[in-house]
Amino acid sequence: MESEQRRIAFICSKGDLDMAYPALVMGWAALGNGIDVTVFFTFWGMDMISKDRQKHLELAPVANTSMKMRLMGLPTGTLGIPNLMGILPGMTAFTSWFMKKKIAKVGAPPVDEYLQMMVDAGAHLYACKMSVDMFGLKKEDFVEGVEDIVTASDFMDMTEGSQIIFI
């Protein structure tokens, strides 16, 4: 009955609110099904584990072709939010607030809580060494649960035999 332990690794490279969720949703589902989970945060993805950014991830309406006005319940078909409107002060805050509301409505927790759930369920979190050096960060800048700062080569070693998903 016992088969080989399945392992999955996520590489999170984006810091936008909407791009934080794929790894959280799939990682949590994997853990619930007894699959080992490792998450490697690189470049903008480090916002997901940075103490001062984690709770403030945003979603910008500018240059986002999928963001239609009907998301807000307006009967405007597939009309987008005009980019010119998107540059108005407060628009990014507005779309971020709006998306957070939509996320909460389906019962999904905020990013910080979701990641903590994953850590509690046994996920391993690592930050990318090169990105950390580039942005001048330290381990103390990251939330608890981030185990270490590792190189790309370390990541390759620790994910041998894993399925890898790049986000």
């Binding site: 619930g32 099904n33 927790p109 509690d120």
Partner: peptide
Amino acid sequence: STKDLFALFPKGPAKKVAKIAGLGKPEGCV
């Protein structure tokens, strides 16, 4: 807590809990 839930039903509580409770496969994602 999440930690305790995963310790009580090791190696993936999602399916185990539902099976033991005589229910179907959980349909939600979170």
